[in-house]
Simulated scan of single mutants.
Amino acid sequence: MGIWTTLSSIAAVFAGCGAALLGVGCVWPTDRPRRPARGHRAACTRGTVRPIQWPEAWTCATPAQPLTITEAHRAMQLHRDHDCGRKRTAFTALVAAGRITPDSARRHPWSNPS
């Protein structure tokens, strides 16, 4: 076997692997819909470095202690796609602090039935 035959065989194997990965990637199920792209925020400027704010807890369970305003805002952002105990606690904390005014015409999934 010559060098060109060996190289073409290796190239054919890589091309086949790439085609297989592409095929699997196209049919792989996603668990959530894609969000539409957002425009550039006006507050962001070039050269601004923001520190990473890691969440305090990676769970949806109801927190043991009351959330601070900053933690409540972050919890609402992280859990906006679903309803959970942490989101309900954050919503209650933000309402109590006056940061959110609930819409009386809209029924929230976590509100008590009247």
Rank of each mutant, 00 (worst) to 15 (best):
A12D: 12
V13K: 05
V13N: 00
F14K: 08
G16E: 07
C17S: 06
A19S: 03
L21N: 10
L22F: 03
L22G: 02
L22M: 03
G23Q: 03
V24F: 07
V24T: 08
V24S: 02
G25H: 06
W28E: 00
W28K: 01
W28F: 00
T30W: 10
D31L: 15
D31Q: 14
R32V: 14
R34Q: 00
R35P: 01
A37L: 15
R38Q: 06
G39E: 14
G39I: 12
G39Q: 13
H40W: 15
R41I: 08
A42K: 02
A43T: 13
C44R: 12
C44G: 05
T45L: 03
T45K: 11
R46F: 14
R46A: 14
G47K: 05
I52R: 08
Q53N: 14
Q53I: 15
Q53H: 15
W54S: 06
P55C: 10
E56N: 09
E56C: 10
A57H: 07
A61F: 02
T62D: 10
P63F: 14
P63K: 06
A64T: 09
Q65V: 01
P66E: 07
L67A: 00
L67S: 00
T68M: 00
T68I: 00
I69D: 08
T70I: 07
E71V: 01
A72S: 13
A72C: 11
R74Y: 12
